[in-house]
Amino acid sequence: MNEMARLQKRRLALYGWMLAAPALALMSLFAFYPAIATFWHSLFSRGTSRRPSVFAGFENYGDLFADPTFWTVATNNLIYAGVTIPVSIIFALVMALWANAHIPARSFVRSAYFTPTILPMIAAANLWLFFYTPDLGVIDQITGFFGASPTNWLGQPETALASVIIVTIWKEAGFFMIFYLAALQTIPPDLHEAARIEGAGRWTYTRRVLLPLLMPTTIFVFVNAMINSVKLIDHLFILTKGGPNNASKLILYWIWEMAFAYFDSPHAAAMTILVLLALGLVAVAQFRLVEKRTHYR
């Protein structure tokens, strides 16, 4: 009897490992091992045919911090994240609230909002390239109608980053809207009616009931937006290539440049590790802080 229970327990443990094994194998192969290998690689100097690579400790990291481009790129990425994350979340929420209301052509509105998400980023970037074209593009056509002179939106340091940011928001907001829409549909209509009877107006209901209940979704979307702010750089290749004068260069684009344009993989590896570290820290802080204040059903 006792023996039987022990066997059963062991069998359950075995099943658990068996079920976890495929994911664990894939994760090790494509996430854990590359991360460790990258770290290891970042500790060696760049090897050439005449000077083989040698162990350099944290020298590569020191080089990065000494490079002014590093600070430009980091600042760019902070601005990029600081604008795209909150703005796309707010847009997503507003669009979801509207698309969830009883309005005519509701499904049309929903799919219209979602369309940018379906487009590949490269295609979207090409579209926006036309929009931004000085003098001929849609944007200059409109501003020109009001008498403004043509602007080279992507070609001047003052507007390049902002232009890139707008494309990202346009692309992301519809995607995040879907999550909000799904969350909104799980909130029973009774709650709104109860709030109405208690005298709560639309704004009070949104602030006191809707937003707290959407908090889990907001966290999820926030984490995704944050990852995207580092990850999603496809449009840079089409729009600005990080220029002019690094004005719109983001971290991942810079890493790509170092690794595959200048073939300086140790520095690229070091930069990658820094990004991983930063993202890890933010994620931990986020879940620690926000988790406590969130109601999960």
Partner: peptide
């Protein structure tokens, strides 16, 4: 309400 409609949070 039948569902009580209590605010879960």
């Amino acid at each position: 309400f039948q569902s009580y409609a209590l605010f879960p949070h």
